[in-house]
Amino acid sequence: MKPQISIIIPVINEAAQLADKLQALQALRVRCELLLVDGGSIDASATIAAPLVDQVLHSQRGRARQMNLGARHAQAEMLLFLHADTRLPERAVELIMSAVEQGAEWGRFDVQFDSPQAIFKLIACMMNVRSRLTGIATGDQAVFITRQAFQAVGGFPEIALMEDIAISAALKKIGKPCCLKAKVVTSARRWQHHGILRTILLMWRLRLRYFFGAHPDELAARYYRRQ
């Protein structure tokens, strides 16, 4: 039986928390297929994932490249791109399929962080409001796209950074995103590790430079320099 949704999970060195994240998706395998795309991990990510997903695919490093490979191997007509550190809300499949039945070609969920700190509630609120106003979805929001729409825009541009913003801009020409109010829960670990204010300022600066034409390779070098 063909799955309703192909859930595509790009990873790189996520062994420490991957088993727990994939266990949370097991109940969905009755209706969905899970495709994990490893971008050259040097840890045990692929080995840990193997019994918990339908396919483990191997790709060159690069989130856009990994997600495009997953889409090429997907069986379903609906594609859901999920970060390894993001947890889907209850009834995610029903919410997506209902949106499609009502004519949505693509969309995303609202987001919240897995930290009780008030600052993360504010950051999440700002991300969700900005997304509604601009029609731009970020990868943390678990973007879903019909196969037809995905192919119409040529998939994710295989750029080093900002691939989520780039594909959102292309998809907006097809139709407005469906902004689901149900919340995915994403990890605050990188924000906490690198400093909350520093991360906010960095992301604002990178996005501003991208909109003014800076090359994604240049932006990626700046972003990953902090890792």
Rank of each mutant, 00 (worst) to 15 (best):
H73Q: 14
A74R: 11
Q75L: 13
Q75E: 10
E77C: 03
M78N: 06
M78Q: 11
L80R: 06
F81H: 13
F81L: 15
F81E: 01
T86E: 03
T86C: 14
T86I: 13
R87I: 13
L88F: 08
L88M: 12
L88G: 07
P89R: 06
P89W: 05
E90H: 07
E90L: 07
V93E: 13
V93Q: 12
I96K: 05
M97Q: 14
V100L: 10
V100R: 15
E101D: 14
Q102G: 02
Q102H: 15
Q102Y: 08
A104T: 05
W106P: 05
R108H: 15
D110Q: 12
Q112I: 07
Q117F: 05
I119F: 00
I119W: 00
K121R: 12
K121Q: 14
L122H: 06
N128D: 12
G135M: 10
I136N: 07
A137T: 04
T138V: 07
T138D: 04
T138N: 08
D140H: 11
A142L: 04
V143R: 03
V143Q: 08
F144E: 04
I145K: 00
R147I: 00
R147T: 04
Q148W: 00
Q148Y: 00
F150Y: 13
Q151T: 06
Q151P: 00
A152I: 00
V153C: 00
V153D: 01
V153I: 02
G154T: 09
G155W: 00
G155T: 00
F156P: 09
F156S: 10
P157H: 08
M162H: 13
M162T: 04
E163D: 15
D164C: 11
A166G: 09
A166D: 13
A166V: 09
A166E: 15
A166M: 12
I167V: 15
S168A: 11
A169Q: 15
K173C: 04
G175Q: 03
G175P: 01
P177S: 08
C179K: 04
L180Y: 07
L180P: 03
L180F: 03
L180I: 15
K181G: 14
K181F: 02
K183S: 13
K183N: 12
T186E: 05
S187C: 06
R189E: 08
R189C: 02
W191R: 00
W191A: 07
W191E: 02
Q192T: 03
H193V: 06
I196L: 11
I196T: 14
I196S: 01
I196R: 00
I196M: 06
L197R: 12
R198V: 08
I200M: 13
I200V: 15
M203W: 10
M203E: 14
M203N: 10
W204C: 12
W204R: 13
R205S: 14
R207A: 08
R207Y: 04
R209G: 01
R209F: 01
Y210C: 03
Y210M: 02
P216Y: 01
P216W: 01
